[in-house]
Design a protein around this nucleic acid. Structure first.
Length: 607
RNA sequence: GCCAGCGUAGCUCAGGGGUAGAGCAGCGGUUUCGUAAACCGCCGGUCGUCGGUUCAAAUCCGACCGCUGGCUCCA
């Protein structure tokens, strides 16, 4: 998985525009930020950030200033302060900002030599560091009132033009994003052109919060995480497990159709294997500690590839056998630092929808093409219309030869172009063992998660001597492709839950239809209807509690059950059911066969 | 792992140096009802864990565990 550091730099660091431009001029990403250059909102948010910095300076005269760029919807500024900030500080800083805004002082730009700037910022170590890194001989500064900042601008004409803003949160942030450097205190704020837009922002946030899979997971009874079991370890409840089963069944059927062989491999293996594979050497920080069994060291598997390789190597393979595609819903365990765990999206134990394709080098391109087709099919089946494709190229440390990398990267690129897919290049972000194509999915709160991935591997075939006998009768190293089309079941369910806001399409809904008898005398009729629906393969339940219909409907709505089938005297008299959809729509009395047909059609259309 | 905040009943949350409260859920009744919450009663918590300060700690302090928001990381 790649970091987002590069993207962050482009969007977030106004002080380094020149450097960034040189470096990123050929990438798509630069366009994203350049579009914003003259944007009014950009200037306003950046100005708000300077006003916040001035307010902080008023309150903490000894403050040291880091950087204060704009971000989506707002801005932040990093400070070194004599004491930690608490949430109570935010309104105080906001008030100070309002004072500065009401004074309506102008932003004044100036240009000066770097030496002069060094004098000016003599007490500001972070600014001095920034000055040193600016390639030009002079720098620009911006001044409002008593506050002077090293800054390229542009800004608004004066502080009074900043209209609607709010400081949202405080956070620690390493200087220059480097773990080894001091942690500064970051204040985040949002700013808009009007109070109305600011209000809209907060109501959008509130809507997004409702889609949070961690919240919906509890409300819809999908999964739980227990302190007693351990952080990042998931218990799938019956409803979550139902969704997972449907996805897995669909996944397996689709893989069998496309020439994959489904396999199973053990969850633990001897440590020596992981030494041979290089995991022990390269990823020890992400592995659970080994365990000793009968004097032998064993380890929980962090990846599924080793098992698949050993299956491949269990007999001699001819070039005629290739490609071989081994697929497994393989559960892996990786030690993730506590601070990074996040609901189902970042966990310590997860099930990858993994497969390894063993092929001849000349088959890579076609195999990648087929995988991309499969990914597209899967994404569209689950309603993901928009996702980001990234092609990651050779990093500094790499296995294999430059020519192998170039050839494989070329193949990946060629396939992407052949399929006319829009993608971006992530330079140097490939895994050490080969180039890859990643697909990123966005969650409701705007986090970007790696989902599907296709990775070419030059490392393992060599380390494990994975070969086939070629036409020439000689052994050749096989080409190996790692790939997932969903990512992991856990992360995929997280994204899926947020994507649908918990209202899963009928084919995925744990309960597809809930039968609601109005009074106790309708219960046996309800069960009769239920069993006929069950016989037709529809997941149906009867709410046969002695409760009022209104309560049952309310609860079914909250559970987002797609079909509510109400049965009372009228329905019994006509042998029908009244259909209510979760949209609130009332379809009136229908014949059960008609309703079954309708639900079956929705299931088969995967809608 | 780092910075900040938080941790009170199954859930959502109030309270706060003198030994705990609401709504929902659960349980027991009553109600048998027509498209998003019927009514009455009962049960329920060593206030995350461990240690310290104090006559007295759920409340103050410390450590640890976990969660939240960021940072870093993410094969």
């Amino acid at each position: 998985m790649t970091s987002q550091r590069s993207l962050v730099q482009v969007q977030y660091c106004p002080f380094f525009d020149e450097i960034i431009v040189d470096f990123w001029i050929h990438t798509e990403r630069f366009k994203m930020s350049s579009k914003k250059q003259d944007d009014y909102m950009e200037r306003m948010r950046h100005s708000a950030s300077h006003i916040m910095a001035e307010a902080v300076q008023h309150l903490f005269p000894d403050a040291k200033f880091g950087i204060g760029p704009t971000i989506e919807d707002g801005f932040y500024y990093d400070f070194e302060l004599p004491r930690p900030l608490t949430p109570e500080d935010l309104p105080i800083i906001e008030n100070e900002m309002r004072k500065i805004i009401s004074q309506n002082v102008p932003f004044i730009a100036d240009e000066m030599s770097k030496d002069k700037a060094r004098e000016l910022f003599a007490a500001q170590p972070y600014k001095l560091e920034l000055i040193d890194e600016i390639p030009d001989s002079s720098v620009t500064i911006y001044k409002q009132g008593s506050f002077i900042d090293l800054c390229r601008g542009p800004h608004l004409a004066s502080t009074g033009e900043v209209k609607a803003f709010k400081l949202t949160r405080i956070a620690g942030a390493y200087w220059r994003g480097d773990e080894k450097r001091p942690m500064l205190q970051r204040i985040y704020g949002v700013a808009f052109e009007s109070q109305e837009e600011l209000d809209n922002y907060f109501s959008r946030q509130a809507e997004a919060t409702k889609r949070d899979h961690r919240k919906l997971g509890k409300e819809l009874d999908l999964f739980s995480i227990h302190e007693e079991i351990g952080p990042g370890l998931i218990c799938w409840h019956p409803r979550g497990a139902m969704i997972r089963q449907v996805i897995e069944d669909f996944w397996k059927a689709e893989h069998r159709k496309r020439g994959y062989d489904i396999v199973y491999t053990p969850h633990i293996a001897k440590l020596d294997l992981w030494k041979t594979s290089g995991h022990w050497e390269f990823y020890r920080d992400y592995l659970f500690s080994p365990m000793e069994i009968e004097g032998q060291q064993y380890m929980l598997k962090p990846m599924n590839c080793i098992g698949h390789i050993l299956i491949y190597k269990s007999k001699l393979r001819s070039y005629r056998n290739l490609p071989l595609r081994y697929a497994e819903l393989g559960t892996v365990y990786r030690y993730e630092r506590t601070g990074v765990l996040y609901g189902l999206a970042r966990v310590r134990g997860f099930t990858q929808d993994d497969a390894h394709i063993f092929c001849r080098p000349d088959q890579i391109e076609e195999e990648v093409l087929e995988v991309l087709n499969l990914i597209q099919f899967m994404m569209s089946s689950f309603g993901f219309d928009e996702y980001e494709l990234l092609l990651s190229t050779r990093p500094e440390k790499y296995a294999g030869t430059v020519s192998m990398w170039e050839e494989a990267t070329g193949s990946l690129k060629h396939v992407l172009e052949k399929l006319d897919l829009h993608y971006e290049i992530d330079p140097g972000e490939g895994v050490f063992y080969g180039p890859k194509i990643d697909i990123k999915l966005k969650d409701a709160l705007g986090h970007v998660w790696q989902g599907p991935t296709i990775q070419v591997d030059f490392n393992l075939p060599q380390r494990f001597n994975v070969c086939y006998i070629g036409e020439d009768g000689l052994e050749h190293n096989v080409a190996m492709i790692h790939r997932t089309v969903l990512g992991s079941m856990e992360r995929f369910l997280a994204c899926l839950t947020e994507h649908y806001g918990g209202a899963f399409p009928v084919w995925l809904s744990p309960v597809q239809a809930l039968i609601i008898p109005i009074a106790d005398r309708h219960v046996s009729y309800a069960h009769k209807i239920a069993s006929s629906f069950k016989n037709d393969g529809i997941r149906v339940c009867v709410d046969d509690r002695s409760e009022r219909m209104n309560l049952k409907i309310r609860e079914a709505q909250l559970e987002k059950v797609p079909y509510m089938l109400i049965v009372g005297d009228k329905e019994m008299a006509t042998s029908g059911v009244s259909v209510r959809l979760r949209s609130g729509e009332d379809l009136d009395i229908k014949a059960p066969t008609e309703v079954k047909k309708r639900i079956r059609a929705a299931i088969e259309a995967r809608s």
